[in-house]
Design a binder for these strands. Structure first.
Ligand SMILES: [Mn+2]
Ligand SMILES: [Mn+2]
Ligand SMILES: [Zn+2]
Ligand SMILES: [Zn+2]
Lengths: 152, 152
DNA sequence: TCCTAATTGAAAAACGTTTTCAATTACTAG
DNA sequence: CTAGTAATTGAAAACGTTTTTCAATTAGGA
């Protein structure tokens, strides 16, 4: 039986008195299978293939819900702001080229020492971290140097 | 002679064929003196005190310019997205409470090892890092627990 | 002082996101 | 297998933010 959403989601939803609807299944299918972060608009366009009647409003609402349930995470990027990615994988960060926008993903992030120290000092209960690196990719390094030349 | 912008800015601007105008001075005064991150709208409202004729469009343009010149940095927060803060201080990160929005600043971030490893592996020339932590502040911890209860 | 490129702000457009609301749907209780 | 009901939906409109356009103004070098 293909395309049946994982029983976990179904259970999680029931536990919160939420329904597993066709629109939600379509969004879920796209975002949990994504190999890279997707904007709400991208999720919308792709999920419509499976469920053409889908509304953008519902995409936003479903993405919010999935973040709450911990299935996906919200990502903040320099351009375009706000994408979503599955949380499944250990957990991802991005290294983005500030010139061409090309991005690499990486998973390693040794923040535990920092996080523990900060928790002690501030009393916060730290749950999430956002780490993004920016620089120039190898390709762009071979090109121009200076900080944004004027048009002249 | 009070309120004269630091000679550095003036020089930097000239070097890039840019002018030091009244509107820019007003924006510069606010954002470089800020003790916390400010949104463009906040900068606008505050800078208008000094230069009432200021336009919001100019605030956006000036903030972009100052980022390019390295005087301020763009900050990505969960709510409201996009604030700006002076780069002067060693360099700052934020620990934000996901419930009440209260924020702490912190400066320590041992990313050098990570950054060097990634540079080697990817060939990127890493210039900037964004690190934000989120969690529950001490106050909010004393309140409700669960992940967003339904209204009933 | 003059000249010109850079800059400005109002207005409008373009975005991304949220709210509203009447109609529809998924689950549950019977 | 029904109802009954709360949850959900999507179109439309409202929203707040950011960008574009363009004619008028201005800073700073010649
Ligand atoms: Mn963001
Ligand atoms: Mn952002
Ligand atoms: Zn690049
Ligand atoms: Zn709090």
């Amino acid at each position: 039986m293909p395309n049946v959403p994982s029983p976990t989601v179904h259970t999680d939803l029931r536990a919160h008195h939420r329904k597993l609807t066709r629109p939600r299944q379509a969004v879920l299918a796209i975002i949990t299978a994504a190999t890279r972060h997707l904007t709400p608009a991208e999720v919308y366009r792709q999920a419509k293939v499976q469920y053409p009647h889908l509304g953008l409003t519902t995409v936003y609402r479903t993405l919010d819900l999935l973040v709450e349930l911990g299935y996906i995470q919200r990502i903040h990027l320099e351009e375009g702001c706000h994408s979503y990615a599955p949380t499944a994988r250990p957990h991802g960060h991005h290294l983005v080229c500030s010139e061409c926008g090309r991005a690499e993903e990486f998973a390693e992030c040794d923040l535990d020492t920092l996080v523990r120290a900060l928790q002690t000092r501030t009393g916060y209960e730290i749950q999430v971290h956002v780490l993004e690196l920016m620089g120039r990719c190898p390709t762009c390094q071979t090109k121009s140097r200076p900080l944004r030349a004027r048009k002249k």
